[in-house]
Simulated assay, not measured.
Amino acid sequence: MNRKLVGRDWLKRPDNRIFHFFAAEKITTNPHWHGLVSFFGADAAERARQGDVFDENAEAIWRKLVPAGTAEVKSMKTHAEYISYVARSLCLQVNYDHFIVPDEFLTK
């Protein structure tokens, strides 16, 4: 996704890459991922463009990883939306093994 958003030199441009955090949920019964993505290093117009590019490409990129899967992208603009999304499962047991943080797969 960073290549789509920032270009082929995305690895050399850490200030322009997306920030993301993904967590697997219901691994044993209905496995699926929840994620938060934020665009940095750009003005409002560029963040809007990146949001459009993300929305247009999320499903195809996810299907390359999980051919039978689907991707549902929801835009959030307010703190209340973030809090509702992130905090809805706080009463459940947290398993940190199922998190993917922004630099998980980066190589130096």
Rank of each mutant, 00 (worst) to 15 (best):
N30K: 14
W62V: 02
G35W: 11
E81T: 11
I61Q: 04
I27F: 15
Y82W: 13
K64R: 15
D55M: 06
N57F: 02
P67G: 13
A71L: 13
H20C: 15
Q93E: 06
R47D: 09
S84E: 14
W10H: 08
H98M: 01
A60E: 07
A23T: 12
I83N: 08
A60G: 06
Q50V: 07
G35K: 06
T29I: 15
A45P: 00
H34Y: 12
D9L: 04
N16E: 13
A23H: 12
F105D: 04
A87C: 07
G69P: 05
P67K: 12
A80Y: 04
V37S: 01
V73C: 05
N30S: 14
R47S: 13
Y96W: 08
R3C: 02
N57P: 02
K108G: 04
A42G: 13
N57Q: 13
V53K: 01
D43A: 09
F40V: 09
V73F: 06
N16V: 01
I83P: 01
T70D: 14
H32E: 14
I100R: 12
K26P: 03
K74S: 10
E46G: 07
N30G: 09
C91R: 07
S84Y: 04
F54D: 00
F105S: 04
A23C: 12
N57T: 14
T107R: 11
A45L: 10
P14A: 06
E46R: 04
H79K: 12
F39E: 01
G51R: 03
H20N: 15
V94K: 08
A44Y: 06
N95L: 04
N57K: 11
F19H: 11
S84I: 04
A44C: 09
Q93H: 04
L90F: 02
P102Q: 05
D9A: 05
F22E: 03
V73E: 02
E81F: 07
N57S: 11
F54S: 01
V73H: 04
R47A: 14
K74T: 12
D15S: 05
R3G: 01
D43V: 06
L11F: 02
A24L: 14
A48N: 08
H34I: 11
E72D: 07
F54L: 09
Y82I: 10
T70K: 15
G69A: 10
G7N: 03
D52E: 13
E104G: 01
K26C: 10
H20D: 10
W62L: 03
F39P: 00
A24T: 09
